[in-house]
Amino acid sequence: MKKLLIVSLGIIGFILLLSPWILILFGKNQLHDHDIPQQEQLVEGQPKHRVLVVFPHPDDEVTVAGTLMKLKGQGHEIQMVCLTRGEKGNSSGIADEVQLARLRTDEMEKAASLIGADQLHMKDYPDSGLEEVGLDSLKKTVSELIEEIRPDVLISYDSKVGLYGHPDHRLTGQAVEEVFLENKGKEGFTPDEMYQVTLCKKQVKLALKLSSGFQKNYPEDPNLGLPEPDFSVRTREFFPRTLDVMQAHATQQAVLRDLMPFHENVPIWIYSRIFDREYFRQVK
């Protein structure tokens, strides 16, 4: 009887020990397309590059925070641009847009510091108003930023959807992409690589079940959806710091829970092994 009890306890202990790894394998299978190549870094380690990251809102950088921290750790220079101050993002119930813009600017500065950005450039375009500003004006701003900063690499949203359908996202991605494609290889134009953050099909499918932003804005026609990733970058070791970047955006916690659901309820060592990569499309 005693021997049977020891064996039973051993089996129970083994199951308990194994269960987190089963959860990790299940989560990875639900979240990732294993046919998409993984790579250790976004760009070559040598020579050191100057990377210009262009997003419309404070908190958009969370989608590539792990990759940016990895680039910084490899010695590359990170220049970040935020086109608006996020005054329309009142998910926290702050109705005063002036106050909210001030708070979100402070949050963006803290997030950039956590990432290790060499410089943050805050612009004053109207939040949720880039359609009224117009593509030509955005392209002019992007061109001026490139001329001023002289980056080697560009990172932004895609030009088809803007990750989940926000017009500001899509127009930002479109402006950066068009400037890059229209000028690549010309004398004096420094960027020779551009990458767009995207998601694999499994992530889109899951997001459409869990994220109100995706449910509201993502195109119903699959042909109009996100561009297929060319590869993913391994970012597991930076996941705890990515959570710190998320927490820096205190006014946007309700929105960011859509990006990484249940992260507050699952141990980091498990969650980081599921959310262990970021997906990109290279613009050619």
Rank of each mutant, 00 (worst) to 15 (best):
195 Y>I: 00
201 K>C: 07
85 R>M: 10
257 R>C: 04
2 K>W: 03
9 L>R: 05
255 V>K: 00
114 L>T: 11
56 P>V: 04
5 L>E: 07
169 H>G: 07
115 I>G: 01
11 I>S: 00
55 F>A: 04
159 S>G: 13
207 A>W: 04
16 L>V: 03
13 G>L: 11
215 Q>G: 13
226 L>V: 12
178 E>D: 14
65 A>C: 06
265 N>Y: 15
263 H>C: 05
172 T>R: 04
30 Q>L: 11
65 A>R: 04
213 G>D: 02
12 I>H: 09
247 Q>W: 12
43 V>P: 05
3 K>A: 14
57 H>T: 03
155 I>D: 06
201 K>G: 05
207 A>R: 09
271 Y>I: 08
54 V>A: 08
261 P>G: 01
101 A>F: 07
180 F>D: 07
47 P>N: 09
104 R>M: 00
229 P>S: 07
170 R>M: 01
277 R>I: 06
107 E>T: 02
79 Q>N: 08
163 L>Q: 01
88 K>A: 11
117 A>L: 03
37 P>H: 04
189 F>D: 02
214 F>N: 00
275 F>T: 02
283 V>I: 13
180 F>R: 01
153 V>D: 07
222 P>D: 06
165 G>F: 04
250 A>M: 05
259 L>I: 11
193 E>A: 15
57 H>A: 04
155 I>V: 15
143 S>H: 02
79 Q>D: 06
204 V>I: 15
99 Q>A: 05
264 E>N: 14
36 I>V: 08
114 L>V: 13
168 D>E: 08
153 V>M: 15
89 G>S: 14
131 E>Q: 13
23 L>F: 08
13 G>V: 02
160 K>A: 11
151 P>I: 00
112 A>Y: 03
26 F>V: 09
276 D>C: 15
167 P>D: 08
55 F>C: 01
183 N>C: 06
234 R>F: 15
154 L>T: 01
269 W>G: 03
164 Y>Q: 03
128 S>C: 09
23 L>I: 12
26 F>R: 09
258 D>S: 15
123 K>V: 03
168 D>G: 10
70 K>T: 04
270 I>M: 15
128 S>K: 11
88 K>V: 09
112 A>D: 05
161 V>M: 02
224 L>Y: 10
192 D>I: 10
205 K>N: 14
186 K>S: 14
61 E>H: 10
1 M>Y: 13
233 V>Y: 00
218 Y>T: 04
213 G>S: 09
86 G>P: 08
264 E>S: 13
91 S>C: 09
175 A>R: 00
